[in-house]
Structure formats: C-alpha cells, structure tokens
Amino acid sequence: MSLISEKKDFKIISDLIPNGSSIIDVGCNDGSLLQYLNEENNINGRGMEIDQDKVQLCLSKGISVIEGDADIDLFDYPDNLFDFSILTYALQATKSPKTVLSQLVRISKKSIISFPNFGHWKIATSLLLNRKMPISNKLSYSWHETPNLHFCTINDFIDLCEEIDINIEIKANLKNYKLRKYTGKNFFDSYFSEAGLFLISKK
C-alpha cells in the first residue's frame, strides 16, 4: 500500500470518528494511525499487534499496545468497551474473519473495517488472463509467502455481514475518498474499488 493512499485512508477514518472517542486499533502496526487520530481527533486510543517489533515501536511512541492475536485476544474485552474498533487491511490475514468481525462489533459500539477487494477488475482480469495469483498495490505478496489467509471481495464482505447480523452504516469510496451512506450492493464498487472501507455495527 502506498503512503499516499495510507494517509488518505487515515483522513477518511478520522472523518468517521468524533473527537475524544475511545478506540482500539486491531493490527495497529507501528501505531501510525493511532498517532494520526491522537493528533486529529484527540482520541483515547490503544492498539493490538501480533508482530513484536511493531509492539516495541508503539511502546517507544507512548502508544498503549497489547502484543496479541485478533483471533484469540479480542475475547478478553467486555461488551461495548470502546466507541470504535478499527481493523485496517488485516481481516484477510485472520484465521477466522467471521469470529474477528463478531468480536469487533461486540467490544465496540461501531467498527471501521478496510480490506483489499479481490473482486477489483484488474485482479479479476489478471487472474483470468494470466492464470496466476494477482499482485497489486494492495495485494503485494506472492501466493507462497502471503500472510493473507482469507481473501474476499466487497460483495463477499457484505454477505458475511448479513449472515452474522452486522449492520453496514457507511461505506467509503476509496477512489475519490468520499463517505456515503450504505444503500446495498453496488456493481461499480465491487468492480472498481481496490479496497473496501466500511463503518459497521451490530444489528
């Protein structure tokens, strides 16, 4: 993922969050999103990260961080503890995306989820024409070394939310970085969005 789009993603997440919100960023990486939100939204934030080197980076920045695994450690939090949980570009790397999503909407009032869209036309076309696993900006690993276990398309994500009683409130257009109220599946999104970013909550 290029830095430019990362910063734009940060901005769009910041736009979704009221100032002073309590937040957990699951798979918080080096804590840069939390730092951004600290500055922009004055949040009460903390992270969870599986990679210890990144945990160390967070600690050195003064960010509270739990070395932990989203598939296991989200169970430790009580219901509705946070205003927001955030999971950016990590859903596809979890063992059980279904469990993780259910836990996220359980421990927070709202969740912000982003993921690479495997249904993007370039990926679909690349697979069709080359018959090789696609590599793009947001899918940057070769098939044999990818940490990603469960790729999905935007439509798959919408179906899963439906299945586990999750309400999609807002979706972001990551092409022009606009937020829109979610009104249902959309042909253009599923073909032309390299990634999906949704604001969800439990029904």
Partner: peptide, 21 residues
C-alpha cells in the same frame, strides 16, 4: 500475567503487554 492485562483492559486503562521469547 495476561489476567492482569485483562482486568486493566476491562477498566479501560492504558495498558500495554509484551511477551518476551
């Protein structure tokens, strides 16, 4: 040690945790 982390989390405190290999 994680029991300690769990209770501080539940209290919404700024708690960090690291497990050294």
């Amino acid at each position: 040690n994680k029991k300690i982390v769990k209770v501080f989390n539940a209290l919404g405190l700024n708690v960090s945790f690291i497990e050294i290999e």
